Simulated scan of single mutants.
Amino acid sequence: MSETQFIDTYRDGFVAHLEAHTPMTEPQNLYAPIQYILGLGGKRLRPILTLMTTEIFGGKAEDAMDAALAVEMFHNFSLVHDDIMDDAPLRRGKVTVHEKWDLNTGILSGDAMLILSYQFFESYPAEMYKELTSLFSKTAIEVCEGQQYDVDFEMRDDVTIPEYLKMIEYKTSVLVAAAMKMGALVAKAPQKDADAIYEFGRNLGIAFQLQDDYLDAFGDPESFGKQAGGDIRENKKTFLYLKALEKANKQNKESLLHLYSIKPEDSTAKVEAVKSIFEESDAVGETKEAISAFTQKAFDELEKIDLPKESKALLKKFGESLMQRTV
């Protein structure tokens, strides 16, 4: 079985479980948006990681389905609320929940998704339930902290690269890390291995988000499913932007600061001008290097885990495939 078929098997099993456990009840205006956002597809990266990690540590994927569901439900809840905060028109190439319905529906449906996330853990025995929900609550609050840092950074001109990396760690990578650690907990893996797989996921998650930043500016909107240069339009201070400020010549630095102080109605020219500065200052090369460095850190964590070679190879291959993605 190829790696793609292997991943597809997890994805298909998970999607079937998701569809069987997505509420389809009244009131329609609360549950229809939940079905809609969950039905938009996406990579299902986090739940797949939960299932895969469970099996790698000798457990059964079906035992981890509810934990995987909690992670996916929470992830999608955060997307619904993020899209409201960003006033984003598109998600995965389709209209966002608050645009398709309205603002209040987006807020309330998101709230319901957060509550549903916690309910999915109730199928686990008491001790495991405690471990899973404790990790989940820590992760959920970090995601909120990461989102607030993201909002704060829009108003600041002195964001540092370490601060930015902390923000993406909280906003994105801790959920990837927790998804993997949950798989280890369901499989009753030793604590040191559960901790190491968390670190693997955390570093991979940072690399994944840096790749996301890069694709937001330089990816194909058709395959990436988001408006091209969305971060630039919103003046988001991404790794690319911070590196460009650090490396650009005086003229380009001044241009970049000016471009990030305006929000023109038609921002096509702004996006192109910013991308040119990103390329000229070698912020693009620096970003690609950082993606490789965090991917390597993740792989180094794998070496600490007592697992068969083929299991490590599978996780490594998965990490490599994430870094070569275009979506």
Score class of each variant (00 low, 15 high):
residue 140 A to Q: 07
residue 131 E to C: 08
residue 140 A to G: 15
residue 137 S to C: 11
residue 132 L to H: 08
residue 169 E to I: 01
residue 150 D to K: 08
residue 133 T to K: 13
residue 139 T to Q: 13
residue 140 A to P: 07
residue 137 S to L: 14
residue 137 S to R: 09
residue 150 D to R: 04
residue 144 C to P: 00
residue 138 K to S: 10
residue 170 Y to L: 14
residue 143 V to S: 06
residue 147 Q to V: 07
residue 176 V to L: 15
residue 175 L to M: 12
residue 150 D to Q: 11
residue 134 S to N: 12
residue 148 Q to T: 14
residue 136 F to V: 06
residue 173 S to E: 10
residue 131 E to W: 06
residue 181 K to V: 04
residue 136 F to Y: 12
residue 153 F to E: 08
residue 149 Y to T: 08
residue 149 Y to M: 15
residue 152 D to W: 11
residue 172 T to L: 03
residue 172 T to A: 11
residue 170 Y to E: 05
residue 146 G to F: 10
residue 158 D to Q: 03
residue 143 V to M: 13
residue 132 L to C: 09
residue 138 K to T: 13
residue 148 Q to D: 06
residue 152 D to H: 10
residue 156 R to V: 04
residue 175 L to D: 02
residue 142 E to D: 12
residue 168 I to M: 02
residue 176 V to W: 05
residue 153 F to D: 09
residue 158 D to T: 05
residue 146 G to Q: 04
residue 165 L to G: 01
residue 156 R to C: 09
residue 164 Y to P: 10
residue 169 E to P: 02
residue 180 M to G: 08
residue 160 T to D: 06
residue 165 L to M: 13
residue 141 I to T: 15
residue 173 S to R: 09
residue 178 A to I: 02
residue 177 A to K: 07
residue 170 Y to P: 04
residue 165 L to N: 09
residue 176 V to D: 00
residue 131 E to K: 15
residue 178 A to W: 05
residue 159 V to I: 14
residue 134 S to T: 15
residue 180 M to H: 01
residue 145 E to Y: 13
residue 143 V to W: 10
residue 160 T to R: 05
residue 175 L to E: 01
residue 145 E to F: 09
residue 163 E to G: 06
residue 147 Q to G: 06
residue 152 D to I: 03
residue 172 T to M: 04
residue 140 A to V: 08
residue 146 G to H: 09
residue 146 G to C: 09
residue 169 E to N: 13
residue 150 D to A: 06
residue 161 I to H: 00
residue 158 D to I: 03
residue 181 K to C: 11
residue 157 D to H: 13
residue 154 E to M: 11
residue 173 S to G: 09
residue 151 V to Y: 10
residue 158 D to M: 03
residue 149 Y to C: 08
residue 169 E to F: 06
residue 144 C to K: 03
residue 160 T to Y: 08
residue 147 Q to I: 03
residue 159 V to Y: 02
residue 153 F to W: 09
residue 170 Y to G: 02
residue 154 E to D: 13
residue 144 C to S: 10
residue 156 R to D: 05
residue 147 Q to T: 08
residue 169 E to M: 12
residue 180 M to R: 02
residue 146 G to R: 01
residue 174 V to H: 04
residue 152 D to R: 12
residue 151 V to S: 07
residue 156 R to K: 14
residue 174 V to K: 11
residue 148 Q to E: 12
residue 137 S to V: 14
residue 154 E to V: 08
residue 177 A to Q: 04
residue 157 D to P: 00
residue 176 V to R: 03
residue 162 P to Y: 02
residue 132 L to Y: 07
residue 178 A to G: 01
